[in-house]
Design a protein around this nucleic acid. Structure first.
Lengths: 153, 153
DNA sequence: AAAAAATGCGTATAGGCGTACCCAAGGAAA
DNA sequence: TTTCCTTGGGTACGCCTATACGCATTTTTT
């Protein structure tokens, strides 16, 4: 990755906060002319550094007020079984994140749900029926204290 | 919140995938004239539904390849102590998420780190020194299987 | 059932913005 | 010192955004 100077960092931080800033607004924020700003922007966007820019919706407002973490234990750990499991997990929209933990057979999921009934359904009708699942343990969250996508630069 | 029809959902889904789509591109995607599309877009953006749009960077590329989950146990559970803790947590950039769990004294954090040394520092020099902390237990992730911000609509 | 009101699309137009290109200035390399 | 390379500013052109207006369809009212 290319070296980032202070201006690049200012640009990235501004766009982390508001990804729909126009180039003109951005240029004003970082004290650059629009043309110079746009050139840097294009280089940054073309680089490997940026994963994308996304609209983020209010979880409550779209009907998914609940967030839970789910620990999954698989009974086998061979490659083929893990791949099958992971392919399936990626298709479940309510699963927002999935990490492989130590031991090659434990996964951690973050799921969103509409209400307790929905979580129960997700738990018993979807997750437990995934291939090779031995154990499903959910931890509900009571409140979101902090949630950010701002990486420190 | 206002009722969403199919076109609204198409717009939101398109912007969840690519938040920098221009109105013209968006209009083409959802089979609408630019003006009609823009009108809907403004209404949606002004509503409570949208939390914002953000540039998301590649964690590895910006030097934070590691993700860990940290369970925190506090020794007191009075309101004042929790507020003090939460205010401090919000100021730590490496803490990407923080949830209150059941029991009013357990928190779950998702943190990013540069290397094991960095995680160790975060663990022993930052988190354990937060006010009212009794126990800090970290769980490292080996691999990110899935990570999305797409909420099902 | 007819009329009126409301909702929402498309077209048109003016102005602003994104885009590409050129030039200038500063610093590094030879 | 000369040349090259990097990076910022300026300008011209074309597209996009924004707003107003007219029209069609649906819904409400009487």
């Amino acid at each position: 990755m290319p070296a980032l100077d202070d201006t690049d960092i200012k640009i990235l931080n501004a766009l982390q906060q508001d990804g729909r800033l126009s180039n003109a607004e951005l240029a004003a924020k970082v004290n650059l002319s629009p043309s110079a700003c746009l050139r840097r922007l294009h280089l940054l966007m073309a680089g490997e550094l940026v994963a994308g820019t996304h609209l983020v919706l209010d979880q409550k407002m779209v009907g998914y007020p609940g967030t839970a973490y789910v620990f999954l234990t698989l009974d086998g750990q061979d490659r083929k079984q893990l791949d099958a499991f992971e392919a399936r997990i990626k298709l479940i929209p309510q699963v927002q994140e999935c990490y492989l933990l130590a031991g090659q057979a434990d996964y951690l999921l973050r799921v969103v749900y509409k209400d307790s009934e929905d979580l129960e359904r997700l738990h018993s009708e979807v997750l437990t029926r995934l291939p090779g699942i031995r154990r499903v343990q959910s931890t509900m969250t009571l409140r979101t204290v902090k949630r950010t996508a701002m990486l420190p630069l």
